[in-house]
Computed example of a mutant assay.
Amino acid sequence: MLDFIAIDFENANNARSSACSLGIAVIEKGVITDVKHWYIKPYPFEMGYYQQRVHKITLESLTLAPAFDELWPEVLPYLEGKTVLAHNAAYDLNLLRGLFEHYHLSIQALQYACTVDMARSTWPNEPKHSLGYLAYYNQLTFTHHRADDDARVCAQLALRMAELHEAADLDDLIYRTKVSKRNFDGTYATLKPQPRTRRNTPFIPNLHTAINHSHPFYGKSVVFTGDLSALGRTEAQQLVWQCGGIAAKNLSYATHYMVVGKQNAQLVGEELISSKMKKAEELLSRGFPLVILNEEEFLAML
């Protein structure tokens, strides 16, 4: 049977002890039976600009939150002796190890695996395997970077992949997707011994099947800089992928379009010229066929 725990952390700054939010989804016999969420007082008690921009948690809202060592007796029963899944497990388990080191905590047994790696094996032809992208194309709605929502969607994706691979239990899913299960210290864990027969992998269709090949963004690389007023960055990128385009993070000679939103003076200076805009000027001066779009032009092309 499919029994596991899905987790997600949000952090306040770059320190490994700075978790400020934790979400846990409990899966028993293939069903999500409980979803929990806690705010955590981070250490050090600082909020990074980029972190807050992602998860929207303010430092002021965490003033009365418990530190992780105070919260640990409540969290421990959910994790001890369990197999944990996380989307980009290396990130979440690194935060958990950092909290353990800072607060001198311990756990007798915990194993984990990564749903990003599972997704890459399940849908190898997809252009990306982020939580937002996979949720969108599996028709899962959630508030991204709210820890309990992220944990729930991570669990739902694992259950979906288990269904597609016809996996009998979690270890069978790990086996079918050819990923590794690890112990809390990072060493490799052994899958539960059971007879495993070689069989043909079930046909698993690509996530996006209906693409308009004549769309102007089809096959084109699109980069964003600045904030869009009508769309969040993730939503805009998903729309590009939906059109068959490539939502790239950085400019290169292969970039076809750069969409320019409102610039933040704290990030780019009073001239409001981002590093991507400077790079774009360089590419244009060298004759590369880059097209600069404002938000209205981007939406019109969509």
Rank of each mutant, 00 (worst) to 15 (best):
R233A: 11
M161Y: 05
D169C: 12
C154Q: 04
Y218P: 01
D169L: 15
I174Q: 06
S180D: 13
Y175K: 02
A162T: 08
T234R: 10
A210K: 15
G219E: 09
Q242N: 11
D150S: 01
N206L: 14
P195L: 15
D172N: 07
H165L: 08
N212C: 06
W241I: 13
F217C: 05
L164R: 00
R196G: 07
S229Q: 15
V240K: 01
D227V: 00
W241N: 03
K220N: 05
T225K: 01
T201V: 09
E163L: 11
C154T: 09
R199N: 07
R196P: 09
I204C: 09
S229E: 15
K181S: 13
Y218W: 14
A162H: 02
T209A: 13
N212K: 14
L239Y: 07
A168H: 00
T201W: 01
P193W: 05
A158M: 03
T225W: 07
R160I: 03
F203S: 10
I174Y: 02
V240P: 02
R160A: 12
A155Q: 08
D172M: 08
D172Q: 07
N183A: 07
V222G: 04
H165C: 08
R199Y: 03
R152H: 14
A230S: 13
K192Q: 10
G226A: 00
M161H: 04
Q238W: 05
F184V: 06
W241H: 15
N183S: 09
R199P: 01
H208S: 12
A158S: 06
